[in-house]
């Protein structure tokens, strides 16, 4: 027999189903899960090194680190006193199954807040739902004001866009207003913070926003 079958199936259906399972599981555990995405070198780990101590008094935290090679990032997180699990994958993104497996390692005492540091890549991670409660795009201002228009998907899908390395603005040739306007064009409803993870500038506003989203995700 021959013929055309209308299937109308999302290409990433398998991942989407796994992510939906994760989401139910994370809700049962009362765990807020934050997926942080960016290009390599935008400062995800540095942002976490500064953010985690600011959350520490209020919540127990854990971090999943995604990288192609090394557990350097997990080591950096452990140095600030937070549990970390490193995923090494030659994939250009984390998927829901990898994250589900990593969460198993924290089950003896599930954290209130789980932060996933995705693999450095401004394109692919945006396509893969992990079952997270909150998506964050981190972008360093030195990457250029035009990038939100060139790589719109990640910005669009994010609940929050954090613009990092604000301390380098004077040397970058990037106009902050132009960058902010491009972020707003493609992602009208995201919360936007301009920070320097290195100097600490602007971090209080970001952490306050994050804590509010954590409360919401945990149903408090």
């Amino acid at each position: 027999m021959s013929g055309r079958v209308a299937v109308e199936t999302p290409v990433l259906k398998k991942n989407d189903e796994y992510a939906a399972g994760n989401r139910r599981w994370f809700a049962e555990l009362g765990m807020a899960v934050i997926n942080i995405m960016s290009a390599p070198g935008a400062g995800k780990t540095t942002l976490l090194e500064k953010t985690l101590p600011m959350l520490a008094g209020r919540y127990s935290c854990a971090v999943i680190e995604g990288d192609l090679q090394t557990d350097l990032d997990a080591e950096r997180i452990r140095k600030v006193g937070v549990r970390a699990h490193q995923i090494n994958t030659t994939c250009c993104h984390l998927d829901a199954r990898m994250v589900g497996g990593a969460v198993e390692t924290f089950l003896e005492s599930p954290p209130d807040v789980l932060i996933i540091e995705n693999i450095g890549n401004l394109v692919c991670p945006a396509s893969y739902d992990l079952g997270e409660s909150v998506k964050v795009t981190l972008f360093s201002v030195v990457e250029g004001a035009d990038k939100p228009k060139k790589y719109p998907k990640m910005f669009r899908m994010s609940d929050c866009v954090v613009l990092n390395k604000a301390d380098l603005l004077p040397y970058s040739g990037v106009e902050l207003d132009e960058l902010l306007s491009n972020v707003r064009d493609v992602s009208p409803e995201a919360a936007v913070f301009t920070v320097s993870a290195r100097t600490g500038e602007g971090l209080a506003g970001w952490v306050e926003w994050l804590a509010a989203r954590v409360e919401k995700a945990r149903g408090r």
Binding site: S2, A6, P188
Partner: peptide
């Protein structure tokens, strides 16, 4: 230029199409 704001009333736009990644049909 991907401006996702309404040119008429200035409110954010909802994307209806353009984000899909779907297998539509298969010929066997």
């Amino acid at each position: 230029d991907l401006v996702l704001w309404c040119a008429v009333c200035g409110k954010p736009l909802k994307v209806l199409e353009g984000e899909e990644l779907m297998v539509e049909s298969i010929e066997l």
